[in-house]
Design a protein around this nucleic acid. Sequence first.
DNA 1: CTACTATTAGTACCTAGTCATAATAGCTCG
DNA 2: CGAGCTATTATGACTAGGTACTAATAGTAG
Lengths: 194, 194
Amino acid sequence: MRRTKKERQQMLKETIKENPFITDEDLAEKFHVSVQTIRLDRLELSIPELRERIKYVAEKRFEDEVRSLPLEEVIGEIIDIELDQSAISIFDVREEHVFIRNKIARGHHVFAQANSLAVAVINDELALTAKANIQFKRSVKQGERVIAKAKVLKIDDGLGRTIVEVMSYANNELVFKGEFEMYRSEKSLKDEKR
Amino acid sequence: MRRTKKERQQMLKETIKENPFITDEDLAEKFHVSVQTIRLDRLELSIPELRERIKYVAEKRFEDEVRSLPLEEVIGEIIDIELDQSAISIFDVREEHVFIRNKIARGHHVFAQANSLAVAVINDELALTAKANIQFKRSVKQGERVIAKAKVLKIDDGLGRTIVEVMSYANNELVFKGEFEMYRSEKSLKDEKR
DNA sequence: CTACTATTAGTACCTAGTCATAATAGCTCG
DNA sequence: CGAGCTATTATGACTAGGTACTAATAGTAG
């Protein structure tokens, strides 16, 4: 007993974590012990053999590949709408919407909810966002429910522009505020139909 | 010769590509041939053995991991980055990103590309969007490739704010322009380390 | 019938292990 | 000093999933 074992096992853990592709033989050499000792250590620490470790890494990669699905069609669920007047949608912040490190919602999801609500409230076949002025008032965490309220401020038929204000709340606190200048391309067409 | 071989080898290729975790034995069963035939096939097609395949997948993941720590949360693919200076990403507009009726990209996808690029370019553990002023210059259609270029304009260490400008182009035309005011939470910590 | 391809079978060997058993070394406690 | 203990090392049998090589057989074309 070279006054080690615990130390060696601690280092073993870290070494394997850092490089799962290392064999018992290489480990034995590295720590100046026999292969059998390394195997006993792995047994005690429940570290699987090289091949299992590699397999695990490979499988995880495969899962991840599917995981990176981006934004959905419409973000949030619309629960109330009065065309050309106002609309409300809710959006539950889940795991896939947040940064891994701190569980804070990525800005573009909060934006997406507000933006798609602004699109929806416009009484037109086709509404596009022309400009937006937005502020993220506070960060939203995983598990919170964001309620976005859109209000149509001004409809300028001449220019085909509509100003929509969206305020988003989580826990009754304002988390996002945005002013969207929306463009209606089909306005004239629609008017003709009437 | 069951009038197959070529067909079988073609299918073999695809099967393994789809699921690299399959053994020769399973393959033999699947194609109703002997294990030896499968091995001959692999030899002819230069497909490595199961363990090598798994290892390859695992290694690739490992390479990606270093790259994808900051990048995995990005919409679009980053092709160039100089921290705290500039970054470029590309984003191909596909079916799932557009309005069904007119094949025009939804604003929040274009925004998401720009916003996540602004997050990525910040040389910090954690960057959040505080404000943004954006303009959609022209609509982007399905099939177009959007190239977003981010430039760090100002780093205000006192406030912990950084201004990032993002210009997005499709077909060499400006389609989106945004100015993002980003918040760095770990700023002070980093300064202390220096 | 012969030549040729495709397929199958069998053997020896490899890597990186598991599992079980046994031997040895270095201590400490009484 | 020796028994008891832990840690380490050695040894042998066995495993999966192969490689490499040789040989036998089936089926078909010329």
